[in-house]
Structure formats: structure tokens, C-alpha cells
Design a protein around this nucleic acid. Sequence first.
RNA 1: GCCGGGGUGGGGUAAUGGACAUCCUUGGGGACUGUGGAUCCCCGGACCCGGGUUCGAUUCCCGGUCCCGGCCCCA
Length: 423
Amino acid sequence: MKIGKIKGFRDHYPEDMEIRNSIFNRMTNTAENFGYKRIDFPSLELLDMYKLKSGSELVNQTFSFTDRGGRDVTLIPEATPSTVRLLTSRKDLPRPIRWYSFPKVWRYEEPQEGRFREHYQFNSDLFGIDSQEADAEVVGLASKILDTLGLSGVYEININDRSVMEYILKDLDVSDINTAFSIIDKYRKIDKNSFSQLFKEIGVGEKSIDKITYLLSEKINIKNLEKKLRKTLNNYDGIEDRINRIKRTFEIINYYTDSNINYDFSVVRGLSYYTGIVFEAFDIQGELRAILGGGRYNNLSTLFSDEEIPAVGFAIGDAVIELLLKRNNLWLNNSLKTSYYICSTTNNYDYPVKIANDIRNKNKIALVDITNRKLSAQIKSASSYNYAIIIGDNEIKGNSITIKNMNNSEQKTIKYVQFMDSL
RNA sequence: GCCGGGGUGGGGUAAUGGACAUCCUUGGGGACUGUGGAUCCCCGGACCCGGGUUCGAUUCCCGGUCCCGGCCCCA
């Protein structure tokens, strides 16, 4: 009987993993170049960790079960709570703290384009500083990662601020802020009438709805942010400091990337724990769901400890990135390691094994064909490597190797010491 | 959880209520006893699962499952 795999889960074969590794390495390497240190944590956590955070229907969207000890546990649906748990468990860490992680995360939802039940998620966070510099650094790292993957010009980042939105909504006499956020989150998915209707249902007047719609109607250049708010709000002065900070944040982000950065009032993110800046990256053509998302969550730490630790971070799932890279012909292996496939026409492998070892000591790829097949079959196997090295009685006697470049078929026999010196 | 479209060797496909299920490709081997990606030959490998209708089902019907996509939700 054939055993299939579980819905929404993926297998990855070598030809896929080579590229995946190469892409993932570029992402982590960029984070390390920013001074971020890697952490890791269990794939299984207590369900309470997520109940604390939001409660609601979250539990239905996780892979959860009761273990043999009667504990309710879940495969982690996101990295942030675990990251904050690690943070609050160590009081001795010098701040600011820059961490990244690259776990698999799980969500029990119907698979669709760019979404699986298991996926890799790159996360990075900056703890201990609540400032425009910290906000800009994290947005900057996010864009730098996309730039490093070759996506410059293909994406844009849309930024908003939860505290600004809260101020605006209060200024416009909206009382049910949380529901208002979830309506705003739907803005780009539903038509204007339904949008207005939802706001009416929570008792928002038509004038306010018009103003909200006016703000959300388009992504704007940061230069126009103040003007637009002055025109809309009953009282602008109370938000002035916050707007100035955002303007500064945008200025600093310009030092990290040339990509388009917009202010977009419709970006609020689904998570309830965000307190300041929130941002998402999208492909310019708007064909895919968000490439990455993040924001500031200053009070999440209070779920685990008494101390409030400022935090700002973001996450990138591998699924949408993969789609986007493939659409732009960037899903490529950029590993530069040279590879050698050693063919042997004798069944004495002493010399080939020694050669392979020496090559590996030079940090290059080498493997020995130990099949005893005829040479033509071995050469065929070698065709996916950079070089074939042929070893027979002649080479053994002469302390030499015959090396064939598999790209242009050029072949020569040289002394072994000469070959090693050339590596 | 809901809706739509799908499921034939590893990948891509053809046909069929009835006999050994088609072709391409990949893989293994050979023609070629020390030279690959050409050609030719040989070999291996498939009807998603269960039930129903039928003398007989890969084919028709129902259910399930998985895949693709959409909704809900979004970490």
C-alpha cells in the first residue's frame, strides 16, 4: 500500500533543496551582516502561549493536541511568542538585542496559492529600543534581504502606524477600535459599499466613513502624509510628534534601500499585538499576497514577564518568496563551489579516494564513482559536475590525473601535485 | 470549515464498458573492452482509495482522499 503525504505539506528533492538552501543562505547571511544572531526554539509549545495572546479562533487554526501527560500543546504557528519567551527568560542579555530565526511553522488552514500548512518562516527582531532608528533598521533589513535576492524594483513596502490609526479613529469618533482595524484590513478585498456598511454597523457616522475612505483610498508619498492628515482630522496637533517620527523613519530607510516605500493607511496587519509601525511588502504587480510583514509590538513581553521590552520585527514565509522569485526567473542556485566527479577504470579505489579527500580539504566538492561501471557510463554520471577526473592504470603509474572539463569537453593529463597546487 | 476544477509509470501524456493500456521523457543495460549530453536496441515502471451499477469498471454513479485554485481566516 502506498502511503501518501499529509495535505498541505511539501517534499523537497535535491534539485529543489539546492536552490532553496542557496536562497535561505542569502537571507540569513544578510541578517548576520546586520549583526543579528540566530536563535532556535522547540517546534512544539504549550497551547497557552497562544491562548494568552489572542484567544479567539486561533486554537482552531493550529495543529494542536493533548500529549500523553495531558498537556495541550501545539506545533508553533509563528515564531514571535517563542522568541519573546527566550528573551524574557534571560535577564542578563545586553541590549539592544538583535535576533533572527528560521523555523518551520504550521497552520491548519486550506492550502492555496502561496500558502501551505507547513512552511519555513524567516524572522528577525530588534529588542530594547523604541525609536525611529530601530524601526528603520528593521524595515531596512527586510528590504535589504529582498534586494539581496534580486528583487529590487519588483517589490514595494507599505507602511502604517497602529498608534496613528488609533488616534485617527478616535478623532473620527470611532469607538470600537479593534473591529475597525479588522474592517480596515479588508479594505482592499471588498467593495466600497460593503466597507461603508461594516463601519455603519459599529455606529460610525457617514462623515467619518467618508474621511476614512479618503485616507485609505491610495498609497501616498510620505511628503503628503502631514497635509492629508491636517485636511482630515479635527485635531492634528495631538498626533504631530508621532508623524514627525514616521517622517524621520522614512528618511532613514532611504539609507538602506532604493525601493519604493509608501505610506498606506490600509496596512494594519491582523495581529492584535502591534503597537506602532506596521509594514508589509508586496510585489509591484499586486498579484500575490504579502511577501513579508511585521511591525512594533512593545507590550508582548508583558505576557511572559513584568517588564515591558520594546520590540520590532518581521517575518518572511518561504512560499510567496518562492512564487515571486520563480516569476522573475530568480529561483536559481548561486552556489559557487566547484565539483569533481572521479571516475575509475580499475577496481582499486585507493588513489581516487585519496584524491577526493584532498579536494575536499580545499573545501570543494568531490565524489568517487564506485560502481565499477564502464567508463562511458561514469562519464555520463559526471555530466552534472564541473569536472570529471579519470583514473586508470596510466594515471596511477604516472602519479597523474586526467581531468575533463564537462562544460567544454577539454581534457588534459597532468601531474597530481600540479593539479593540487592549482586548487 | 465551505465552494469549483482535477487525479493513468518518477515527470508529461493517449485511448478505452472487454484481449498484453499508447507515446514521449527520465532511470538501468547494451551496440562502443579508457570518454557524456547524437542514433538504434533491450529492460524496469501507472489506471488515487472504497463502495455501487454491470457477466465484466481504468472508463459510468456515489463517498472519501490528495492536488490546483477561490472563500473564511490570517501568525
